[in-house]
Design a protein around this nucleic acid. Structure first.
Length: 470
RNA sequence: GACCCUAUCGUCCAGUGGCCUAGGACAUCGCCCUUUCACGGCGAGAACACGGGUUCGAAUCCCGUUAGGGUCGCCA
């Protein structure tokens, strides 16, 4: 029944005549709650994408009519989250603009003037000290870019009571200030969560009573937990701050969010944001609520780590190494190590665990690995033989740059042949001797990066330590 | 309760009447590569919620049921 009333979605709004001469102005209007929810972040992202796609403006407006929530820290979480995701705003807090102030708490005079307008039009009445808007009592049709045309019958006062727009203490209610600000800030398109869809007919009444043309609306589906339950603050992946602290690459999270409810229609997934900006079309936004899959986000994150230019990766990994107390001295030192271990990193925060033993000689030996490998008969002898061979290798080619992965491999393999054992009998003891653990990047490359002196010293140290305990 | 939105693999998406014995990705499982862990490659299992229509033909259109979500605040 609903579908019969819907207009085709594709291409409906960009061709509207009024938009041809009008620059797109969209806004993200969060209320400061102390954190930025992924759903909010995606709403901001879609607005930003639309602004960038059309060459319009992306505006940030803080809906802080609730004084109790209006704290600097809560505001900061919004700024930090948006900036981290690379969603720069053209007008709003910190950057200004021609339609400010961009905090509702500072727009009292404007709201008063609109109250006067409504009062003059006979649209208001008082009820227990509060101000109520007298509904127009007719059908309001929401023409939504995502959901199509939806008529709402507001004629029944029982089911649709007049909305309150101002409390007895003079503070404002969301519906009213939201509409006033959208008029004042010349907002052309409102892209917001689907939870506002049922509020929209009320907003339309306000626009009508104020004699203003409403913006175009696009209500995007909500984001739920993977199991379909509602996502709340504490849930995994709910807060943008969690990604910042969790070692995610901002571009990866943004890429993931782009794909939650929107699709380029051709199976492309890892996409540079410039391509998304180019191809983004609100008409292609899905109508079904998306369930949040953090594992897929992790995979995308890994893809970004894999594909990022090495220098850039180093830059992003650095703070994590510092935080873990790893003394890498200069960024140049971490580049060769990163080359070896990057395909093992799912998150930036994994870096210290894979890299620490490259930057200290005082690394621990993994007890389990030692018990499993070096305790085996002959293991220490193999290591001893290898140490001797490598020392010889080093001496033979001293200073000639022959301490290479290839040379080390050849040498190790011939030692294994000499001893009449499988290559692994040398490889595993060598890895533990040089790194203290049983897992890691390619052994020969690891040894190459470590360098002759350190490898030989480490073998000696391992031999001394493990022979003693034996 | 009323009104509104939604319904394809466990999850994200593709599919807009015939190209669908339903495609891709994550996850899962198997094999290959390999000194380990990964990366990578190959392969497998896995879905059109249900019931009625319309039509020569329906995942696609219509109706209903069921399920999920949203709104109905002097929250935003």
């Amino acid at each position: 029944m609903r579908r019969a009333h819907r207009l085709p979605r594709a291409g409906t709004f960009p061709t509207l005549p009024r938009l041809m001469s009008e620059q797109v102005r969209v806004r993200f209007a969060p209320s400061p709650t102390g954190y930025l929810h992924v759903g909010g972040a995606r709403t901001a992202l879609f607005n930003w994408l639309y602004a960038r796609h059309t060459g319009g403006k992306f505006i940030l407006r803080i809906e802080d009519t609730d004084a109790a929530r209006n704290t600097e820290a809560a505001m900061q979480a919004i700024y930090d989250g948006l900036r981290w995701l690379g969603l720069d705003w053209d007008e709003g807090p910190l950057v200004g603009g021609d339609f400010g102030p961009y905090f509702q708490s500072q727009r009292n005079a404007i709201y008063e003037s609109y109250i006067a307008k409504l009062r003059a039009g006979g649209h208001l009445y008082e009820d227990g000290g509060a101000l109520r808007f007298r509904s127009l009592r007719k059908v309001q049709t929401v023409d939504d870019m995502v959901c199509g045309k939806i008529p709402f019958d507001l004629s029944n006062a029982e089911t649709h009571p007049d909305m309150t727009i101002r409390r007895p203490d003079g503070s404002w209610i969301f519906h009213f200030v939201n509409v006033v600000d959208d008029i004042e800030m010349k907002i052309t398109h409102v892209i917001r969560g689907e939870d506002h869809l049922s509020n929209t007919p009320k907003h339309l009444e306000l626009f009508e009573a104020l004699g203003a043309t409403p913006p175009r609306y696009a209500h995007i589906p909500l984001i739920m937990n993977k199991d379909g339950t509602k996502m709340s603050k504490r849930d995994q992946g709910a807060a943008v701050g969690g990604y910042i602290e969790g070692g995610y690459v901002p571009e990866a999270v943004r890429n993931f969010l782009c794909l939650l409810g929107w699709s380029p229609k051709d199976d492309r997934e890892i996409m540079p944001i410039s391509e998304v900006v180019e191809r983004f079309d609100p008409a292609n936004i899905n109508r079904k609520a998306a369930h949040f899959d953090l594992e897929k986000c992790d995979w995308i994150n890994q893809q970004y780590i894999l594909q990022m230019p090495l220098e850039k990766l180093a830059e992003q990994v650095e703070p994590w190494l510092t935080k873990a107390g790893i003394n890498f001295d200069t960024r140049a030192n971490i580049l060769p190590v990163l080359t070896l271990v990057r395909e093992r990193l799912k998150k930036l925060s994994d870096a210290p665990a894979w890299m620490d033993y490259f930057f200290t000689e005082d690394f621990p030996f993994d007890a389990e690995a030692v018990a499993k490998v070096l305790a085996k008969p002959g293991a220490l002898d193999h290591l001893r033989a290898l140490a001797a061979a490598y020392a010889g290798l080093a001496a033979a080619y001293a200073g000639l740059g022959k301490w290479t992965a290839a040379a080390l491999e050849t040498s190790l393999k011939s030692q294994a042949t000499l001893a009449g054992v499988k290559v692994g009998e040398f490889v595993h003891p060598a890895r533990i001797g040089a790194t203290g653990r049983s897992v890691g990047a390619s052994l020969y490359h690891t040894l190459e990066v470590l360098g002759r002196e350190r490898v030989l010293a480490r073998f000696d140290r391992a031999l001394a330590k493990l022979s003693a305990t034996k």
